[in-house]
Amino acid sequence: MNEVSEYIKDVAKGVKTLLGGLSVTGYYFFHPKEIITQQYPENRGTLKMFDRFRGEVIMPHNEKNEHRCNGCSSCELACPNGSIRIVSKHLLLENGKKKKIIDQHIYNLSLCTLCNACVKACPTDALKMSQEFEHATFGRVELIKVLNKTGSVVMEGLEE
């Protein structure tokens, strides 16, 4: 008799736990407000990333088309993946001396792991992380970017 009551108790307990599980999922079914997914391209307007979100490396320019990079190569050295390359050129000054200035700051997004090391290493705060996260392109070449705009120069006082 004891065994039979044990058996019935087992069944009742099992059914009770199953009903508990059903109540949890059932609660969410009947409360659609709890839905967490978002409709992505539709909510683009309201979607705002956090300020520190690391989307890609950019070089901010001011309205006079000046940036803060003097081509010191700190970022190139700090980068663990070799995704930054700095091409410099030599300028002939009036006094006959040569001066090294930055020509192109080449940044390869496809190699970048967004570790923030270059931003940290930059002595002149020339680099920043943007909050852009839509990086899809039709070719890998498009991910190789030149960060300084054409015709831009270094801000005064920041030259080496």
Binding site: T25, I36, T37, Q39
Partner: peptide, 13 residues
């Protein structure tokens, strides 16, 4: 749809 609503999703939209 039902499975999506159980799982806090919207399902096919």
């Amino acid at each position: 749809k039902v499975c999506a609503f159980f799982q806090l999703r919207l399902g096919p939209m």
